[in-house]
């Protein structure tokens, strides 16, 4: 097989992505949409490493990776873009190098910063979609506020111990993060129990959400939160609600 005459895909790209283009409602048109798409992955830790890896493998045209700081030994049980040999070096540079080894065809922008209220507008302006993998709620709220303002879809994924949650926010259509949590949750702490297999599981699911939204197929988790408990291997789908008078998405 070869790309059709008007395809934006090269023959090499066509050969690389051929097996996923066999998904009927994705196809060559879906692959072209991924190639033309851009995603911000906020932090490339246990969760974001896997998100970025799967999006790079799938052929998303541009990834912006935002994560401050150097690789520490305690990162290595889950942050799969951070090899032992890179201890002490910048996380985003290691991530960029590993992703380029996997897929040299895509553009990767490495930003040695965590997302905050000051840089969120500029980072989100560069992309079509955000995957939120931040470990602190203030970062998540900064991204949510700016995603709503710029009307960009935001895949919200998080984990704790052997549990995880996932939903896809479409500004104006679904609850936003501030609808769910009107105040900063008081019990969350930055250090949390984590196996790489748990963050990796929800990372793959979040990447699939991003691919579906960007390529326009399947049924993204809009207005639905999936939670999973890998201790029991259970999954739940629950309906979430927009909150009256949300001060971010202004739901009337």
């Amino acid at each position: 097989m070869a790309p059709n005459t008007h395809s934006s895909l090269t023959e090499e790209e066509y050969a690389t992505y051929e097996w996923q283009m066999w998904v009927d409602d994705f196809g060559e048109a879906g692959q072209e949409r991924l190639k033309a798409s851009s995603v911000l992955v906020s932090r490339v830790g246990g969760l974001g490493s896997v998100v970025a890896y799967e999006l790079a493998a799938a052929g998303v045209g541009k990834l912006v990776l935002a994560h401050a700081g150097n690789i520490k030994p305690s990162d290595l049980n889950r942050q799969i873009l951070m090899p032992h040999a890179a201890l002490g070096t910048l996380r985003v540079e290691s991530a960029k190098r590993r992703l380029k080894e996997l897929n040299p065809r895509i553009e990767i922008v490495a930003v040695n910063e965590n997302v905050d209220a000051d840089n969120s507008a500029g980072l989100i302006e560069q992309v079509d979609l955000i995957v939120d993998c931040a470990p602190m709620f203030d970062e998540r709220f900064a991204m949510n506020r700016e995603a709503v303002r710029q009307k960009k879809p935001l895949v919200e994924c998080a984990m704790y111990e052997l549990e995880a949650s996932l939903t896809t926010i479409i500004p104006g259509q679904t609850p936003c993060l501030a609808c769910l949590y009107p105040k900063v949750p008081p019990v969350w702490r930055r250090e949390f129990p984590v196996f790489g297999a748990v963050s990796g599981t929800v990372g793959c699911m979040a990447a699939m959400e991003a691919i579906k939204v960007l390529a326009g197929f399947g049924n993204p988790l809009t207005g639905i939160m999936v939670t999973t408990n890998l201790r029991e291997m259970t999954f739940s789908r629950r309906r979430i609600q927009r909150r009256t008078a949300c001060d971010v998405c202004g739901n009337p």
């Binding site: 998080a158 704790y160 949650s165 969350w188």
Partner: peptide
């Protein structure tokens, strides 16, 4: 939602989840 004090029925399941942000 916060404003509604939901009414319960026999056999209901009420799930209480603290927000998580592990990344």
């Amino acid at each position: 939602v916060r404003q509604a004090e939901g009414v319960l029925s026999d056999g209901d399941t009420l799930t209480l989840m603290t927000p998580i942000s592990g990344g």
